[in-house]
């Protein structure tokens, strides 16, 4: 079996001032080719001003099965949100 080109994840910044956002993946022999393929596959209609690629095997993801305990600490802390606080109506903007 011949070696398959590795898989890369592609992130695109759609315009200056915005985050790079994951758009999908593709196969390429190296990073340079991954950028060129990403341009052809994911930005045919001016969707981007900048591209990041990273080989998929280097991404560590949280386990969805552990999502509950992982995110549980934030769940009971409503006081982190501004709407938790009752202020007099006279205070218009705060």
């Amino acid at each position: 079996m011949k070696k398959e080109w590795p898989l890369w994840e592609v992130f695109i910044r759609s315009k200056s001032g915005l985050h790079h956002k994951h758009v999908g993946s593709l196969h390429a022999a190296d990073a340079e080719m991954a950028i060129e393929h990403a341009r052809d596959v994911y930005t045919r209609r001016n969707e981007g001003v900048s591209i990041w690629v990273v080989e998929s095997k280097y991404i560590t993801a949280s386990d969805p099965a552990d999502a509950d305990p992982l995110f549980e600490p934030a769940k009971d802390k409503v006081y982190r949100h501004p709407t938790f606080y009752n202020l007099p109506d006279e205070v218009k903007h705060m």
Binding site: K2, K3, W5, A29, D30, M33
Partner: peptide, 8 residues
């Protein structure tokens, strides 16, 4: 495909 991989 093979040449690109070998070059990389």
């Amino acid at each position: 495909r093979e040449a690109a991989m070998a070059y990389a």
